[in-house]
Computed example of a mutant assay.
Amino acid sequence: MSNSNPLAELSAAGVSIWLDDLSRERLSTGNLASLIAEKNVVGVTTNPTIFAAALSDGAAYDEQVRELAARGADVHATVREVTTTDVRHACDLFRDTYDATDGVDGRVSIEVDPRLAKDSERTAAEALDLWKTVDRPNLMVKIPATIEGLPAITRTLAEGVSVNVTLIFSVERYRKVMEAFLTGLEQAKANGHDLRTIHSVASFFVSRVDSEIDKRLDAIDSPKAKELRGKAAIANAVLAHAAYQETFTGERWEALAADGARAQRPLWASTGVKDPNYSDTRYVDQLVVPNVVNTMPEKTLHAVADHGRIEGDTVTGRADQAQQVFDELVEVGIDLDDVFVTLETEGVDKFEKSWAELLDTVTGQLDQAKG
Score class of each variant (00 low, 15 high):
Q321E: 15
V273N: 03
E311N: 10
A37C: 01
D218Q: 07
I143T: 04
T146E: 08
D210A: 01
S170N: 05
K132C: 01
E328P: 05
S2G: 09
P114S: 06
L195C: 09
A225W: 05
K132R: 15
T123S: 14
E357Y: 06
F204L: 13
A369W: 11
G192I: 07
E311I: 07
E251G: 12
A255F: 03
R282Y: 03
R136N: 06
A235C: 02
N47P: 10
P151G: 03
A369T: 08
V206T: 09
P114A: 08
L182K: 11
A243S: 13
A127L: 12
L182S: 12
R265I: 08
S16D: 12
G347W: 06
G371M: 00
N291Y: 08
A59W: 00
Q365T: 05
V163Y: 04
A77G: 02
V284C: 03
T49F: 07
Q187I: 00
D327A: 11
T361M: 04
L239F: 02
D327I: 04
Q187A: 11
L228E: 06
A52D: 12
K39M: 09
G160Y: 03
Q321H: 00
V284R: 02
R136H: 13
D306C: 02
T46R: 13
G260M: 05
V65T: 06
L93C: 13
D280P: 06
E352N: 12
M140C: 13
R24V: 08
I147S: 11
D129C: 02
V315D: 00
E148A: 15
N291C: 00
I310D: 02
A77P: 01
V332H: 03
P137G: 09
I143S: 05
A54K: 05
Q286E: 14
L185R: 05
A219I: 03
I50D: 13
Q286Y: 06
L228C: 04
T97S: 15
V348G: 08
A257E: 15
T247H: 11
D20R: 10
V112E: 03
G272I: 09
V201M: 10
A242R: 05
E25Q: 14
S162N: 03
A180H: 04
D218I: 06
R71Q: 15
R262T: 15
R71M: 13
V238F: 02
G260N: 09
I213N: 02
